[in-house]
Amino acid sequence: MSVTHELMIAGFGGQGVLFAGKILVYAGLLAGKEVSWLPSYGPEMRGGTANINVMISDTMIGSPIVTNPTMLVAMNQPSLEKFEKDVKKDGIILIDSTLIPAQVKRADVKTCYIPATKLAEDKGLKGLANMIMVGKVTKELGVFDLEVVKAATSKSVPERKQDLLASNLRAIEIGFNYMEG
């Protein structure tokens, strides 16, 4: 039985949701999956809302548009409000609970609350809440190992920013190992 994971990662422009999606897609590619990455583009990239459609599949991907995600990663309140209703039954909603005080209303989905922004600040990784979410997504997806995501990150961080690689990798680990409660 072929499985297609359809992810919607949404937040403010500048939170790094496009980059987070890129890491996940790259990891999928390294793991031998079919992948696609479709960004919202245009004015929203300049500080408004941004979202990214990510597909990771065992088989050829049809349309790269995600209308009913199997996983929603909400990095801000408007994103949760906008996309909560679209998530597939038995899907997963991951929430940055530092920035989203609201609870998920639906009972037919799995929900994970991660204070990603606060975790990042506490560990001296300000601005890397997106990578903490990447770690958590990796754990919840179970499609590729932590090591594969780390390899994808190493390849995606440009040479002139290699000094930031270690902190990115640390953020991913924090998200991967985070336990609620």
């Binding site: 992948v35 696609s36 990455w37 479709l38 583009y41 790269p64 548009i65």
Partner: peptide, 10 residues
Amino acid sequence: DGMLGQVMEP
């Protein structure tokens, strides 16, 4: 089209 221009695939 805009989508094909923006989408990233292998």
